[in-house]
Amino acid sequence: MNLALLIIFAFLALAIYLGIRARRGKDMDLEEWSVGGRGFGTIFVFLLLAGEIYTTFTFLGASGWAYGRGGPAFYILSYGALAYVMGYWLLPAVWRYAKENRLHSQSDFFVSKYRSPGLGVLVSLVAVVAMVPYLAVQFQGLGIIVSEASYGSISSTVAIVIGVVAVTVYVIISGIHGSAWTSVVKDVMVLAVVVFLGLYLPFALYGGIGEMFQRQLSL
């Protein structure tokens, strides 16, 4: 067993352990499972929001876009900033309304706010239709990353199956607490890798960020 495999399985074990352990000390009812008893602190939510914009897209899609298209890839920075500006008015209002009415899901909100069960069903359907391809793409990205990182000894398909099983287990057991705690690990790791690579590659290969862009310009 080589070092790469050891690291991959160590992180898998850590994720499953944290995901399942997150349940401890919680009276697990639907509210606790779906929205964490509405008790996540400000800092925790901030870190999750900051970390959740990084996905497999960060490593595969975004770098591919920047490589293939250049400047247009900066839309990634732009839409994040502008979306959070809108979130300032939208999200606290939704959160307060959902707390007062003890809602658990996006479709609950539409059922309650617009007094229309039909709208809730429609929102659920749209959410599923949107989430399934999104999940498929993310797992495909996971498969590519794991199979590359293990030098091909774990095939993409096997990696996806292991990933799906692990996520399903800790989400069923711990709900949002499981996702939140594994996200903490993921967010810290992704951020560390992104910052490291973003600085290491230009400095090691070109001697600086400005030098890297100058070099590209002269090609």
Binding site: L77, S78, G80, L82, Y84
Partner: peptide, 20 residues
């Protein structure tokens, strides 16, 4: 012009993310 080593368009976007 390059600003802080970044092409101007990248600098402009980064500047606005920070200003935001």
């Amino acid at each position: 012009p390059f600003v802080l080593g970044m092409p101007f368009i990248l600098f402009w976007i980064v500047l606005w993310v920070v200003l935001t």
